[in-house]
């Protein structure tokens, strides 16, 4: 860990003004300190934002929820209203990490969680994300946990989190305050980037930007499911995860919001898949077409080839469950 200066921010203005000067925010620190110990990240200045007034969950005027950026994963998952009307979010958070990590990890920090690519984590390895232009060692290396969708020749890393996958399916938005004090709302689905030629940029945050909250829209009716597939029963990152919010109208699908984790550099949402489902009667054939659509451009890199078949099976199973007759909301 490189030496750094450490300062506590007292309020938002203090935080963003300090950060504009090339500092890194620290909230829970569970991912940042993991990476700084390895010197995968080596910030010169840390600004501790834990004193900021961002740890509340409140109802919005529209009937949704505003989850403060410093709300811990545990508090978010255990929040009564989240459990009642956004169960997919509770389930997704509870599927991630461990009880200890969820107690420390924050809503804003979790959005910024960096990839678990083995080569990104090992500073002896070339990595375009860690060191732009140095090359991608995963492309022809061991890439079991890597992307099958939206990757580039520069980077096939995945976003490893669970929470943002559920938020993507829920059409949540990230509230960001810039160094200049401007507040903007970015849909979670647009928050993370695809790697393209600049995999060093995980998301759309600019220097000095501070995530202040995640806004959940008013609850939707319908079935909510989070399915996570991993290499051990608990405490492991997703090989593939799926968040589904599906509403039926009689025997037809009224709406479907589907997001996938572990497959791409961002939580993956494909509106063409959803459009294909809406208005249709659930059937194996329909779900098979949905999987075809989702995976039309999918590409494996060797050790992650299985994810294509796995995702197909997960999609079909989750849609089958979500559209079963008598399925509870």
């Amino acid at each position: 860990m490189k030496p750094f200066t450490y300062a506590k921010a007292n309020d938002r203005a203090d935080a963003t003004s300090q950060a504009a000067d090339d500092a890194t925010f620290i909230a829970g620190g569970t991912n940042l300190l993991d990476l700084t110990k390895l010197e995968v990240m080596a910030p010169d200045r840390l600004v501790d934002i834990n004193r900021l007034d961002l740890a509340e969950i409140s109802e919005t005027d529209e009937g949704g929820l505003r989850i403060g950026a410093l709300v811990s994963n545990s508090d978010c998952a255990a929040h009564v209203r989240v459990r009642q009307v956004y169960p997919v979010l509770s389930r997704a958070i509870l599927a991630g990490a461990s009880g200890q990590l969820r107690n420390k990890a924050t809503t804003g920090g979790n959005l910024c969680q960096r990839t678990r690519c083995y080569y990104f984590y090992d500073t002896a390895m070339p990595c375009n994300k860690r060191e732009p232009g140095s090359g991608c060692q995963a492309l022809q290396g061991f890439n079991r946990i890597h992307a099958i969708l939206g990757a580039s020749e520069a980077c096939i890393a995945t976003y490893p989190g669970d929470m943002a996958v559920a938020m993507t399916a829920l059409d949540a938005a990230v509230e960001i305050e810039s160094a200049a004090g401007e507040v903007r709302l970015i849909p979670v689905r647009d928050f993370h980037r695809l790697p393209g030629d600049h995999p060093e940029k995980d998301n759309i945050l600019e220097a000095g930007d501070l995530i202040t909250a995640v806004i959940l829209p008013p609850p939707v009716t319908g079935r909510q499911i989070y399915r996570k597939v991993r290499d051990r029963a608990s405490y492991a990152f997703a090989l593939c995860s799926m968040a589904a919010v599906v509403e039926m109208d009689g025997d037809r699908i009224a709406s479907a919001a589907l997001a996938f984790g572990g497959l791409a550099h961002k939580p993956w949402r494909d509106e063409a898949v959803e459009a294909l489902l809406v208005g249709e009667k659930p059937s194996a054939a329909l779900f098979g077409r949905a999987a075809d659509q989702l995976l039309a451009e999918a590409r494996g890199y060797g050790s992650n080839d299985f994810k294509i078949a796995l995702t197909r099976r997960v999609l079909i199973a989750v849609l089958t469950e979500a559209t079963q007759e008598g399925a509870a909301a």
Binding site: Y6, I26, G28, G29, T30, L33, D34, G99, Q100, L101, N103, K104
Partner: peptide
């Protein structure tokens, strides 16, 4: 409960 290794 937290992991004391991942906090300053």
């Amino acid at each position: 409960r937290i992991n004391s290794c991942l906090t300053l």
